[in-house]
Amino acid sequence: MESKDEQLTIKRILEGETALFSHFVEQYSHSVYSMIVRIVQSREDAEELSQDAFLKAFSKLDTFKGDCSFSTWLFRIAYNTAISFVRKKKVILPAIDESIIETVSDEAVGTFFDEDENERRLQQLEIAIAQLNAEEKALITLFYLESKRVNELAMVFGLTTENVRVKLHRTRKKLFVLIKMQDGER
């Protein structure tokens, strides 16, 4: 849906045509769910939280100013909903020495992740992704899976574009380190 169409639809919803909100639910339910399910790692919780996110979006629709796309705004709500949920559950993640991440070169990471896929690497990467924190999981899901641009991610996470770039670089390096730890190299 084009931004102009979205604005028009939102205007009509605010004027009382509630049923039109189903367009947004239909269009974004899968993307919102897939981001949340990666953060919370549970289908039931993810469905409930996705529903909460849509309900929050509907009740706050009058505050949507249109300075970003509706999907970006919705992802911000969904991300905050999922993060609040995760914070209540204290998940223990493996601690990684920051200095190890700093020593990894960009070239090594770039070459590693551009390798041809093989089953073992995919499995290792899947385990490594599960070990990332909630923000990192959401970040890579939106960047790689939903193809969100850096400026859109900045809006979703409430960060500057530069911060998002740094976090993305750091997350790639962290994934690299986590895989190397599985190989027993670090």
């Binding site: 770039g110 551009d114 896929e117 990467l125 790689y144 899976l145 790639r172």
Partner: peptide, 12 residues
């Protein structure tokens, strides 16, 4: 960073 096909493939 835009490529990283291994990460994309894993997420998919």
């Amino acid at each position: 960073m835009e490529k990283d096909k291994l990460i994309k493939q894993t997420l998919k």
